[in-house]
Amino acid sequence: PKDQAKKEIEKALRNGDEEKAKRLAKKYGISDDDWKELKKRVS
């Protein structure tokens, strides 16, 4: 599910692991808009 994916990506971003977050986003098909939203929430 997308919500689970977003949680994992957000966690990776919080850990400062943007490479992992990007890989997860690609793997789960997270859209650019969702990606920006996640980045905003974390920063």
Rank of each mutant, 00 (worst) to 15 (best):
K36W: 14
E8W: 11
D32S: 07
V42D: 02
D32Q: 08
L13R: 00
L38K: 01
K20C: 07
K7A: 13
E8K: 07
A5Q: 14
R23P: 00
E10H: 04
E8Y: 07
D33A: 13
L24V: 04
A21T: 01
D3F: 10
V42P: 04
E10N: 03
I9E: 00
W35E: 01
K22F: 11
K11H: 13
W35F: 15
K22V: 11
K40H: 14
Y28N: 04
K27A: 10
E18G: 04
K39T: 07
K39Y: 10
K26L: 12
K36H: 12
K36P: 01
S43N: 15
E37I: 05
E37W: 04
K6H: 14
W35M: 12
A21M: 01
P1E: 12
E10C: 07
A12I: 08
D3V: 08
K7M: 13
E37Q: 05
W35T: 01
K6Q: 10
K40W: 11
K40E: 15
A12F: 09
Y28P: 00
D34K: 02
Y28R: 01
K26T: 11
Y28V: 03
E19G: 08
N15Q: 14
D32Y: 11
Y28K: 02
K22E: 08
V42H: 07
K27L: 14
K7Y: 09
K39A: 06
G29W: 03
I30P: 00
I9M: 03
R23A: 14
K20H: 14
K36S: 07
K39V: 15
N15I: 10
R23V: 11
R23K: 13
K20S: 11
D3W: 11
K27G: 04
K22T: 06
K39F: 06
L24S: 01
E19M: 09
E37P: 01
A12W: 12
L13V: 02
N15H: 09
E18A: 05
E19K: 12
A5D: 07
E8M: 11
K40F: 12
N15W: 08
S43H: 14
D17A: 05
R14T: 05
K26A: 10
R23H: 11
I30W: 07
E37S: 04
D32K: 09
R23D: 12
E10T: 07
S43G: 13
K11G: 08
E8T: 05
K7S: 10
D32M: 06
G16V: 02
K20Q: 11
L13F: 04
D32N: 08
S31A: 04
K26R: 10
E18Q: 05
D32F: 09
K27T: 08
I30Q: 01
K36A: 13
V42Y: 09
E10P: 00
E37M: 05
P1H: 12
R14N: 04
K2T: 14
D33K: 10
E18H: 06
W35G: 00
S31N: 07
E19P: 08
D33P: 04
K20P: 02
K20V: 09
G16P: 01
K7E: 12
V42T: 06
L24R: 01
K27M: 11
G29P: 01
I9T: 02
E19W: 08
L38Y: 03
K36E: 15
A21Q: 01
A25H: 02
R41D: 09
A12D: 02
D32T: 05
G16I: 02
L38N: 01
A21C: 00
D3Y: 09
S43P: 12
E8F: 06
K40P: 02
D34V: 07
E8D: 08
K11T: 14
R14I: 06
Y28I: 04
Q4N: 11
Y28C: 03
R41Q: 15
S31E: 04
I30E: 00
K20D: 08
S31V: 03
A25P: 00
E8R: 08
A21K: 00
G29Y: 05
K40Q: 12
R23L: 13
D17Y: 14
V42G: 04
E8S: 06
S43C: 07
Y28E: 03
G16N: 08
Q4F: 13
S31L: 04
L38C: 03
D33I: 06
W35I: 06
L24I: 07
K20F: 15
E19R: 11
D33L: 07
S31F: 02
E10R: 04
Q4R: 12
Q4G: 10
K20E: 14
W35H: 01
V42S: 04
K2P: 12
G29L: 07
K6G: 05
L38E: 01
I30M: 12
I9D: 00
K27I: 12
I9F: 01
K2M: 14
K22G: 05
R41F: 14
V42C: 07
L24E: 02
L24A: 02
K20A: 12
D34W: 05
S31D: 05
A25L: 03
D34C: 05
P1I: 12
K6W: 15
A25D: 00
D33M: 06
E8G: 03
I30V: 07
S31K: 04
K26V: 13
L38M: 10
K20Y: 15
Q4H: 12
P1C: 06
I9Q: 00
K7F: 10
S43Q: 15
K40L: 11
D33N: 09
Q4D: 13
A25T: 03
L13E: 00
K6N: 08
I30D: 00
S31I: 03
A25V: 08
K26G: 06
D34M: 05
E37F: 03
K36N: 14
L24W: 03
L24Y: 03
S43D: 15
G29S: 07
A12V: 07
E10S: 06
D17N: 11
L38A: 02
E8V: 07
E18V: 07
K36R: 11
D3M: 08
E37V: 04
G16R: 06
K7Q: 13
G29V: 04
A5T: 05
S31H: 04
V42E: 03
R41K: 15
Q4C: 09
K6M: 15
E19N: 10
S43E: 15
R41M: 15
L24P: 00
